[in-house]
């Protein structure tokens, strides 16, 4: 339950593109209403004012990739009554979790002339690998309407109405013609909805940026991709290893097709 009086909101960023915290500023119609209900106590992207905790509601964008951040997330947790991971990076490790499949040292030498200046961990990990997370909002990027629902639910002291069904169901609700039936590989059957089935609506296959849905049958879908649509093993690895590469269901499936 939110506290009496104006609850304090904090927004934190770890390794990410900034897009998920930007989603809050992208709520152009609602932003002033949100800040009318919540005190913007800490949100570096938006304000010079940086109030100390404790915070009532904390939104965290980004994955943990450095020792500094691995310590900081514990401090953020201690200062926060209700902590929400927003976006793929915070929920699963993000695209930077592609390092988890390689030797990170090779990555550093590929990008930087002086690897000794760079401090990074071998794995990009979700917040939940480090601290207790009270709620996870998936998506790369998150859907701003879901973010507003989450904030409204928090203020009302109820559970957010964010359903765990697949992109397929959203496609059916929109009346889209199935792109997979037309021969385009689509991760919709195994992917968490929330985006509004935006890719199939634009005539392309879903690429899984909301992560695995509950009980995702990835091996059945991979078999369909392979037998019916002729995808190579290499293509299957890449299909499951992009924005949610580190999610256990997608990770297992990509590893199953690796030579």
């Amino acid at each position: 339950m939110p506290p009496k009086g104006k609850p304090k909101l904090s927004v934190w960023k770890f390794a990410s593109c900034d897009g998920c915290q930007l989603s809050l500023l992208d709520c152009e119609d609602e932003l002033l209403a949100v800040t009318g209900e919540l005190e913007l106590a800490y949100f570096v992207e938006a304000s010079r004012a940086m109030a100390k905790g404790p915070y009532d509601l904390t939104l965290v964008d980004g994955s943990i990739t450095t020792t500094h951040d691995a310590e900081l997330i514990h401090k953020v947790r201690r200062a926060s009554k209700y902590l929400v991971a927003i976006g793929t990076c915070a929920c699963s490790g993000g695209i930077q979790a592609l390092r988890n499949f390689k030797d990170v040292h090779d990555f550093i030498t590929a990008v930087y002339a002086h690897p000794e200046y760079i401090s990074t961990l071998a794995q990009s990990t979700p917040l939940s690998a480090h601290v207790k997370v009270d709620y996870q909002l998936n998506g790369c990027p998150i859907n701003k309407h879901q973010l507003l629902e989450l904030i409204s639910a928090y203020l009302a002291g109820r559970t957010p109405q964010i359903t765990p069904h697949s992109v397929c169901l959203q496609c059916k609700l929109k009346g889209n013609i199935c792109v997979q039936v037309l021969g385009t590989p689509c991760l919709g059957p195994v992917t968490h909805g929330g985006c509004g089935a935006v890719c199939p609506t634009y005539h392309r296959g879903c690429y899984g940026c909301y992560g695995p849905k509950e009980t995702a049958n990835t091996s059945s879908l991979a078999a369909w991709f392979s037998r019916r649509l002729g995808l190579s093993e290499d293509s299957l690895v890449r299909a499951f290893r992009t924005f949610y590469a580190n999610a256990p269901e997608f990770r297992r499936e990509s590893e199953a097709h690796e030579k």
Partner: peptide, 16 residues
């Protein structure tokens, strides 16, 4: 700039 590095150039290699 202490934004953690994310190594895009590295993991783009091998992608289509």
């Amino acid at each position: 700039i202490f934004e953690p590095p994310r190594f895009f150039e590295a993991f783009l290699r091998g992608r289509q």
